[in-house]
Design a protein around this nucleic acid. Structure first.
Length: 768
DNA sequence: CGTTTTTGCCTTTTT
DNA sequence: GGCAAAAACG
């Protein structure tokens, strides 16, 4: 998709070149590079902002300066982020800059400090960008939704289209697979969902699926499923997350007039976390920037950790080629970490190739070395970190200033158990989000039916929750009738009731459901939203359903429902609320101000910082993760390394890395070798703690300790089993290459590439 | 149609 | 090993 926008002119040039006044007090608080990035308001600008170098500060000051110098009105600035949190934070900080005459001085109020941040339940907050009337500040998806609603009819939708969640998507795909007679077993809906998602990330509509490789995806079925899926979405007046970007591209390329309107409007475009943009987002930005060309992208190629979600580091690497007059500013002065931490992180990331390259430095002189701890297994790891946490707390570091960052979700369990026995307060960040909880989705589905009865997916979700005696057979009948009449499930139900085709108990049950919906809809005008929610939860019997269940989970669910009815009060109407709930996905963890240790994945930690950071599980196979290497080879390994870099640079003062010799994964003991990333840290930045199994092997300080470790492991119990680790690639004389699925007592369960699944004796297999 | 049993998952997941 | 979704059963 080439940029097809012909209206390139320089009519606005003179205005853009007005220099931001030097005596601006906002600039006084910046270092020279930051100031450059803020002052270069005319033309394309790439800001390479290393971890902890104050990129949010640059972005917000830049916007504040543009406004103060009246280079543009607030609604002529487009500022895009990836998360609602980032958008909200930016809005707050711009407000602060514009209202307080003398800005807060001091080094780096750089990244977000979780203990200082109000992590309030965002369900109740208004959409970001409200306060300072920056109407076009938000996430790619929220801006997409807004643009698409405005021009919905050009895309075959109405302005009230619904945004599907992942559940809805899968349910829809499942129905389509059934219609197309595609076997769900061999080609599961999830596979199609992934392929379609990745196509949308690349900006490919069904008509654009032409490459041989794409046409073969998912057994050669993906292209036609994609087509059918998009048709179904349109007939349901719905869009999925990917569509929120893809439809904008379609809109802009098919209707140049619309593109012109937006491209002319946005005199300044700012993009946060540019390294995380996918191709579709990249194309979209390029179209919008084609007129004024005042696009400022801030990012860090070393922190690109979402390629598996379609992010293209290439976007940042090619910026200078795409915008010939682009300026590049590097932010390299780090305001967060001590020298040892910075040097270690820099040394690790230096092993990656194809970087744009930055050298972080700090004026801070002192600071501790990184501490490295070897432990026997994950229980000892948890015990060690638990002790350290208590120790640091005694020394005055609040629990809220500590975090344990893991590669994979299951790792948090050992720590949770440990903290529970120690009585150390902790919180797990990530995991199930508020709106993803089943009870919230159910309640929202009821609201969706009230707001738009044609919402068949919502109808299907709750028609039998609580139980109304409507099962598969009835649903099938409803679907058939709906298809024949070209009507919604809701209308089909009404039709069947009218004609008397459904009788008896079933009919009265359905009738009651329909009557209730009608009644609730009529009340929309008289009652407030919380009253509506309460009414629906009460009259539908949904709340009663959970009240009858006397489990602790049920109590939690009722709490969440209460929270929901409280939260809707903040919204003007039901549609505002529904839009918000589909686009905002943050956990409503109530008392986030409490002093607690944070447990999260490395991915979830991006953008945060802590006084003390613990990085457990630095073992080959887990980190770098075997699957990343298997699936993406050298590229996968480099992304794992960036993840290591992100993790290390979260720490302000204390950084502790740990690795275990043995780890139980899915109840199988697996012995492991320390992560190669540990070996990439220069010795002079490491302090090796004793007490571990092979602490002595390392303290020798020779470069060969990896071998020693392997030797020690050779003597560890269950050697045979660990020799063939789960996931390891092996070779068998008869069956060829394969991957170990499981092993027990010398018997291996192997998925061979050619021969399929086989059980074989370990003796007949050797590592590939 | 609703219950019980069996099977199949098991890296990360900004919206 | 543990959990959720499908299949089998009543």
């Amino acid at each position: 998709m080439e940029c097809c926008f012909p209206l390139i002119s320089d009519y606005n040039r003179s205005m853009n070149d007005v220099a931001v006044s030097i005596d601006n007090p906002l600039l006084a608080a910046l270092n020279p590079e930051q100031r450059q990035a803020v002052e270069a308001t005319g033309g394309p600008l790439l800001v390479l902002a290393g971890a902890g170098t104050g990129k949010t500060r640059v972005l917000t000051t830049r916007i504040a300066c543009i406004l103060m110098n009246k280079l543009a009105w607030p609604d002529e600035i487009l500022a895009v982020t990836f998360t609602n949190k980032a958008a909200r934070e930016m809005a707050e900080r711009i407000d602060l800059l514009l209202t307080s005459p003398s800005p807060v001085r001091g080094e780096g109020w750089g990244g977000g400090n979780i203990s200082a941040r109000q992590n309030t339940p965002s369900l109740t907050l208004p959409p970001a960008g409200g306060g300072n009337s920056l109407r076009w500040m938000g996430t790619f998806h929220s801006i997409g939704a807004r643009v698409i609603r405005r021009h919905a009819e050009k895309l075959g939708l109405t302005s009230s289209f619904t945004i599907l969640d992942v559940d809805d998507q899968l349910r829809l795909l499942k129905a389509i697979l059934a219609e197309l007679h595609i076997d769900e077993k061999s080609l599961p809906p999830k596979l199609f969902s992934a392929v379609i998602q990745s196509w949308k990330d690349q900006g490919l509509t069904p008509d654009n699926i032409t490459s041989a490789q794409d046409l073969q995806a998912a057994g050669g079925q993906a292209a036609r499923v994609y087509k059918a899926y998009q048709e179904r979405l349109r007939s349901l007046n719905a869009a999925d997350f990917g569509d929120l970007i893809l439809h904008m591209l379609t809109l802009f390329t098919r209707h140049p007039g619309v593109l012109e309107e937006y491209a002319k409007r946005f005199k300044y475009i700012l993009v946060d976390e540019y390294q995380d943009t996918n191709v579709a987002q990249y194309l979209w930005l390029r179209l919008l920037a084609s007129f004024h060309k005042n696009i400022c992208c801030v990012g860090d190629d070393d922190q690109s950790i979402y390629s598996w979600r379609g992010a293209e580091v290439g976007n940042i690497l090619r910026f200078e080629r795409d915008y010939p007059n682009a300026r590049t500013v590097r932010l390299e002065r780090n305001y967060r970490s001590t020298p040892h931490i910075l040097a270690a992180a820099s040394a690790v990331i230096a092993n990656n190739r194809g970087r744009l390259g930055k050298t972080l430095w700090t004026h801070v002189k002192d600071g501790e070395k990184i501490r490295l701890k070897s432990v026997w297994d994950e229980r000892e790891e948890a015990r060690f970190i638990g002790e350290e946490v208590e120790d640091m707390q005694k020394k005055g570091i609040p629990l809220g200033g500590m975090a344990i960052l893991v590669r994979a979700g299951f790792q948090t369990r050992a720590f949770e158990e440990r903290f529970l026995t120690l009585g150390v307060p902790y919180r797990v960040i990530g995991g199930l989000r508020f709106y993803e909880r089943a009870e919230i989705r159910d309640a929202v589905a009821y609201l969706r039916i009230i707001a738009s009865p044609a919402d068949g997916l919502a109808f299907e979700r709750v028609i039998n929750i609580p139980r109304r005696g409507i099962g598969q057979a009835t649903m099938q009948q409803l679907h058939t009738v709906a298809r024949n009449l070209n009507a919604s499930l809701y209308n089909a139900t009404m039709h069947l009731l009218k004609t008397g085709e459904i009788k008896g108990k079933l009919a009265s049950s359905l009738q009651r459901f329909i009557d209730s919906c009608e009644r609730w809809r009529k009340k929309l005008d008289e009652l407030t939203l919380p009253e509506i929610v309460d009414l629906v939860l009460e009259e539908s019997g949904y709340r009663a359903m959970w009240q009858q269940e006397k489990t602790p989970e049920a109590a939690g669910k009722l709490e969440n429902l209460k929270e929901l009815s409280r939260a809707v009060g903040e919204f003007e109407n039901i549609n505002n609320f529904l839009e918000h709930v589909s686009l905002v996905t943050e956990a409503a963890n109530a008392d986030s101000n409490a002093d607690m240790v944070s447990l999260m994945t490395l991915h979830a930690a991006k953008g945060l910082e802590f006084d003390a950071v613990f990085l457990p599980g630095w073992e080959e196979g887990l980190f770098p993760h075997q699957r990343a290497i298997d699936e993406s080879g050298a590229r996968g390994l480099e992304e794992e390394r960036r993840l290591a870099y992100v993790g290390m640079t979260r720490a302000r003062k204390k950084l502790t890395i740990a690795h275990a010799a043995n780890r139980r994964i899915y109840n199988q003991w697996q012995s492991s070798v320390p992560s190669r990333f540990i070996a990439e840290i220069p010795q002079e930045h490491i302090e090796t703690l004793d007490g571990g199994v092979y602490g002595s092997a390392q303290s020798g300080g020779n470069g060969n300790w990896k071998d020693e470790v392997a030797a020690i492991l050779g003597g560890a119990p269950k050697k045979e089993e660990s020799h063939f680790a789960r996931g390891a690639r092996v070779f068998h004389q008869k069956f060829g290459y394969g991957r170990i699925e499981s092993s027990s007592g010398g018997h291996l369960d192997i998925a061979f590439e050619k021969a399929g699944h086989k059980k074989v004796l370990a003796d007949f297999v050797k590592p590939a």
